[in-house]
Nucleic acid binder design. Structure first.
Lengths: 350, 350
DNA sequence: ATGAAAGCGCTAACAA
DNA sequence: TTGTTAGCGCTTTCAT
């Protein structure tokens, strides 16, 4: 007739206590670990625990002050290879540090993002990691700033990972990787091969990651005294299909170029297929380069020259940095380097 | 001198109550939604909430009986494209249904998996979804059975997704997809092209997914009265590197075959590169097929013939099925179909 | 319509 | 070494 008997299984610490003939605190102490308990009682308690298959309710522990800390990871789409790698880094590091790891895909919807962050605030997550570039509008800064403040107000922390920083004073940790630098180096490499008309398959015009890579493309040209033809700057998004479509159109439009630099490896993959479909040889007729160094880059044919970004490390670092701070820690802003991986898809201009 | 003043931000429902000059219950009622509250009070409370930027502690709500339900997703490695798609499906459906979504990568470590499931039991997760094939040993069944029971005992539910079922009586939901059938159809397609010596690049010999696909390979041969040469059955794992290595060795060893079927698209990608490195043309010299239909399959050159698996749908279904049940629901066991996607990497035998 | 009090499952300070 | 009591932050009777 006890509560337990009708609600089989959901045993509480009191059920265990009763069964072991001790008080709830004693059970708590036995389970808690380091605390003096006679080995006789300990045995009895443990037996009761086993018999009831008892596990303490983590939520109750949490509000009593001894919860498993949680960490949240917010991205647009876990399906993108680079995001997946970051997610992996985050998840690995979080569990290593004894944290639970919540995920949320926003599908690029700011409202969804906002709601989720609010939930995380309610969950008292130790940190919320926002991943991936976005349009850097005043509205963005404002909204994000608000999230940062409200998280900070409950002792949590906002981390911006590969996402535009907010300017001074915002309680955020930002971890970036050098998109412009990577693109600069990559395009410099292409130019070194003698190419002068390099098509750029970019992302959304207002997307920070896309912008930074485009900036690198431009800078590399200008550093060699070349003013790139604006007609060679195409915009789409970071998907494979975008690359395919843009490339096909460029060919059909009779655009002249001897090399193409894609904003991501996904874009490059689509572009490569379009090039093949047009009967063009890479790098014989046209050179091609990507960005991100996803695992598949090696298996494209020809193997793709690209820029390596330490995504997994980025994720790990985000977690470590966010979790390693004390209230006195100044706001960090890290910038990770990238490097060009030369493979077979870029050759000398013919 | 209130608690709040020194512990800025972490305001509780009582802080709000005080500030609004009402009782905590009233605040709870206002926030709770549908309950008669004078609009004057409501306004005062809402103002206090805003001023304090208050959010109710989700954990406290949970133990009081009104928590946000949670759902856990356990896989080997989020980095694998097919896993990522399942994860996406799970996450999407979970949020659609108002659930939070926890993730854990086990890196294939059973102990890690066990620990995580125990944590989820403590969290009172609504369901725990275990993803991906594994060695189907008695030890596995035993361990998993135990997890299923212990989850059930706290009102949670174990879901096996693309993972071997446990036999009757276990409180689990299992969602599978037809690995054997898909492989059968794929290999039948290859045989139809006249190939008689088809190399199979398999996974770990005791991995269920690998076994099922291998079984399909075998069955398709036998259905045509062909007894496949055991020397053509190679084992590795599901990675790109495994495919590359296996393929290279097979070529070096002078193995004779006119087509190769890889256990996954990743394996196929590695194999393709090895084929190219050996100067072999696909499908001119050798035909090649994969399994999974990851997005990149289209961009391999030639575009990869493969088996489409509805991974995202699988994830969504797992969530819907697990969450949609009542204690009376019989244990479901769903089997999703797959289909061959014919592209350019398989051609007639030369 | 609102407040006081009890309770959710746990831990910790205080006694014994 | 162990039990009693008082919280943790919230919801929900039960009164009023």
């Amino acid at each position: 007739m006890t509560r337990k008997s009708e609600d089989a299984g959901r045993s509480t610490i009191r059920d265990v206590a009763t069964r072991a003939g001790v008080s709830a605190s004693t059970v708590s102490r036995v389970l808690g670990g380091a605390y003096p308990v006679s080995s006789a009682t300990r045995t009895r308690v443990m037996r009761a625990v086993r018999e009831l298959d008892y596990v303490a309710d983590a939520r109750a522990k949490a509000i009593a002050g001894v919860g498993t800390p949680t960490l949240a990871f917010v991205l647009e789409d876990i399906t993108g290879p680079s995001f997946a790698h970051m997610a992996h880094g985050v998840e690995r590091e979080a569990t290593r540090l004894g944290h639970l790891c919540l995920v949320c895909s926003t599908e690029g919807d700011a409202r969804h993002e906002l709601e989720f962050v609010e939930m995380m605030r309610a969950q008292r997550a130790a940190a919320v990691i926002l991943v991936g570039g976005t349009a850097d509008t005043p509205e963005y800064r404002d909204r994000t700033r608000r999230m940062a403040d409200s998280l900070a107000s409950v002792g949590s922390r906002l981390v911006l990972c590969g996402r535009p920083p907010l300017g001074p004073g915002a309680p955020v940790t930002v971890i970036e990787y050098d998109n412009e630098g990577g693109a600069y180096a990559l395009v410099a490499h292409v130019l070194t091969q003698g190419h002068r008309r390099v098509l750029f398959l970019g992302g959304k015009p207002d997307h920070t990651t896309a912008q930074d890579r485009e900036r690198g493309y431009l800078a590399a040209h200008r550093a060699r005294g070349i003013e790139p033809d604006p007609a060679l700057l195409l915009h789409g998004d970071f998907t494979r299909d975008s690359g395919h479509r843009l490339m096909r159109r460029a060919i059909e439009a009779g655009l002249e170029f001897t090399a193409v630099v894609a904003a991501t490896d996904m874009v490059a993959a689509g572009a490569l297929t379009a090039l093949h479909e047009a009967g063009l040889d890479v790098p014989g007729d046209i050179s091609l380069a990507g960005y991100d160094d996803i695992p598949f880059a090696r298996d494209l044919h020809p193997a793709l020259t690209t820029v390596h970004v330490p995504y997994e490390e980025l994720g790990r670092l985000a977690v470590r940095t966010a979790l390693g701070r004390t209230p006195e820690t100044p706001d960090e802003h890290l910038l990770l380097g990238t490097h060009v991986v030369v493979r077979d898809s870029v050759g000398p201009v013919s």
